[in-house]
Lab assay of single mutants.
Amino acid sequence: VGDQVLEIVPSNEEQIKNLLQLEAQEHLQLDFWKSPTTPGETAHVRVPFVNVQAVKVFLESQGIAYSIMIED
């Protein structure tokens, strides 16, 4: 199991704000291929294997929908 690319769908401005804060966490080494800008629009982010669980827990705790787009 390696890195994953998640497709994330924020449903409101609050969730977009939370994702932008997540993007700013440099220690997570997230690679946003497509940043969140509009509710209902997908964002794509590559998550290093060591941080996959932490990111998924965060998304679930914020009620942000996501799916695994690419499993490496």
Rank of each mutant, 00 (worst) to 15 (best):
G63F: 05
I8W: 02
V55A: 02
G40K: 04
T42M: 07
K34A: 06
K56P: 00
H44F: 15
N18W: 15
F58N: 01
M69P: 04
T37A: 07
E13F: 12
G63A: 04
V45H: 01
D72V: 14
F32G: 02
F58M: 05
S35E: 06
N18C: 15
A54L: 11
L30H: 01
I64T: 01
P48M: 04
V9L: 11
V5A: 04
Q53R: 08
V45M: 11
V45R: 00
E14N: 07
V47S: 01
E14P: 03
A43R: 03
E26R: 10
Q15V: 03
V45T: 01
K34G: 04
K34E: 07
Q15G: 02
K56D: 01
V45Q: 01
Q62K: 15
K56V: 12
L28E: 02
V57Y: 14
F32A: 02
H44Y: 15
K17H: 10
G63M: 05
S11D: 09
S61C: 08
E14F: 08
T37N: 06
G2V: 09
Q4I: 15
A54V: 12
K34Y: 05
V50G: 09
F32N: 02
I16P: 00
T42N: 04
V52Q: 05
P39W: 04
E60P: 00
K17D: 06
N51A: 11
W33S: 10
D31N: 14
E41Q: 09
F49E: 06
A54F: 13
V5W: 15
I70N: 11
A24H: 09
A43N: 04
E13L: 13
L19P: 01
K56I: 14
I68K: 03
I68H: 04
F49M: 10
A65Q: 12
L19V: 05
T37Q: 06
F49V: 07
F32V: 04
E60K: 06
V50M: 12
I70W: 13
M69K: 07
Q25V: 09
L6W: 12
A43Y: 15
L19M: 04
P10A: 06
E60R: 06
Q21C: 10
V9Y: 15
L28R: 03
I8G: 00
Q53I: 11
Q62W: 14
V45L: 15
K56L: 14
L59D: 00
S67L: 06
G63I: 02
Q25K: 09
G40T: 04
D72T: 11
S35D: 05
M69L: 11
L22M: 06
L59M: 03
